[in-house]
């Protein structure tokens, strides 16, 4: 069976803390996710996302703090939102499914949301199939 590879850029303050919490709470989520901890979701360069795709990822998940007021750096999550919004449009023009990128706000306490989002996302990518087909 086809197993998608997914890179997850998780912000240090919220989403990755949620992943830690999921770990200590013994919640299980698919092993297709390869988490990379970044200082802020606003720090994720579109180039890094494309680089992930070029190196074999089938989907990219970006996890940040809730808008409008949770971001540790005040407005990093809005920067991430704007970047991903335009990038999705750009990908569509190039003929790549924009669903391969997903931006989610996950706070440090929402371990169950993280688990749900990863399960959902893996299913979406599984349906879309590998990127280079």
């Amino acid at each position: 069976m086809y197993e998608p590879k997914i890179i997850a850029f998780l912000c240090r303050w919220c989403a990755s803390a949620a992943a830690d919490l999921a770990g200590v709470s013994r919640l299980s989520y698919p092993a297709n996710i390869i988490p990379i901890v970044v200082p802020c979701s606003g720090r994720v360069d579109p180039r890094a996302i494309i680089e992930a795709f070029l190196n074999g990822a089938d989907g990219v998940l970006i996890g940040g703090c809730h808008t409008p007021n949770d971001c540790h750096y005040i407005s990093g999550n809005f920067k991430a939102f704007k970047r991903i919004h335009i990038l999705k449009k750009l990908l569509k023009q190039f003929g790549i499914e924009p669903e391969r990128i997903r931006l989610e706000w996950i706070s440090a306490t929402e371990a169950t949301k993280l688990v749900q989002v990863t399960k959902d996302f893996v299913e979406t990518i599984r349906k879309l199939g590998p990127l280079a087909r």
């Binding site: 180039r47 494309i50 680089e51 795709f53 070029l54 750009l90 990908l91 190039f94 003929g95 790549i96 990127l131 280079a132 087909r133």
Partner: peptide, 10 residues
């Protein structure tokens, strides 16, 4: 562009 490389690879 990197995106062109990605699409052509595909």
């Amino acid at each position: 562009s990197y995106l062109t490389k990605l699409v052509l690879k595909r």
